Simulated assay, not measured.
Amino acid sequence: MAEFHDVLFPAAVSFGATGGPERRVEIVQMTSGREQRNARLRHSRRHYDAGTGVRSLSDLYEIMDFFEARRGSLHGFRFRDPFDMKSCRPDATIAARDQRIGTGDGVARVFQLAKTYGVGEDAYVRPIRKVLTSSVRVAVAGAELAPNRFAVDAATGLVTLMQAPVEGAAVTAGFEFHVPVRFDTERIAISLTAFKAGQIPSIPLIEVSA
């Protein structure tokens, strides 16, 4: 039975991976020449190829071990996206006011971590679930909370405040996160001769909802 293994894909290999978000859009050509376009999925889905991050035979053996322990594509795991892993830009420092995650109503104490892309009505809000709890910083109405004033669920990205924010108070957060993925292949083809000649095996990964 498929499960999510709360383990991190080898960080040294993920640093050199390629990939990013995919948007599935259904496009129908009308007889008038115009197009009808519909989004097939509410959220984007990320794809990666970790093969470009393999730099040594040691990396290959580590990937083989990891692949076998996950039973190939059966079990999901954490992956550190080298391009998008923080509430801020990759070269910036995480701050408690990076992302707005809710507004107080005097009752609610639980808020979902999220990252917003774009501005205004066209902005896309991405739920963040596989968070690094030690990295999370939270602020209410601009004032940062002490770590003992909130709790974070590492699996769901839910933040629970010890006290409900007053009505209208902005709840913001800063954090580092991982992407839940699985192997998008049933096998990994490795050739030592090809590797020495500069050919790196393809190691496709795909985002999952776990």
Rank of each mutant, 00 (worst) to 15 (best):
I188T: 10
L57Q: 12
L60A: 05
V131Q: 03
V179P: 00
P10E: 10
A92N: 12
G120L: 02
D153G: 03
T116H: 00
F15W: 07
M1E: 14
K115M: 09
R109P: 01
S73Y: 04
T31H: 10
Q99E: 14
S134H: 09
S58L: 13
H43D: 11
A210Y: 11
A69D: 10
R45F: 03
G142A: 09
G19T: 05
L57T: 12
L60D: 02
G76W: 01
G20W: 09
S202V: 12
A143V: 14
V179Y: 00
G20A: 08
E144H: 10
V107N: 11
F150V: 04
A146K: 09
F9Y: 15
D6R: 08
F177I: 04
M64G: 15
A189P: 02
F83V: 10
L161E: 02
G106H: 11
L145Q: 06
H178Y: 15
A164W: 08
T156F: 05
P127K: 08
R109L: 01
E176M: 12
F183N: 01
R40L: 15
S32N: 15
F9T: 06
P204A: 01
G33T: 04
V152F: 05
G106N: 12
G104K: 00
L145S: 07
E176V: 08
P127N: 07
L145G: 05
A189M: 12
V125I: 15
Q29L: 14
G53K: 03
F4T: 02
F77N: 03
R137F: 05
A155P: 01
D98S: 11
R109H: 00
A210E: 14
I27S: 12
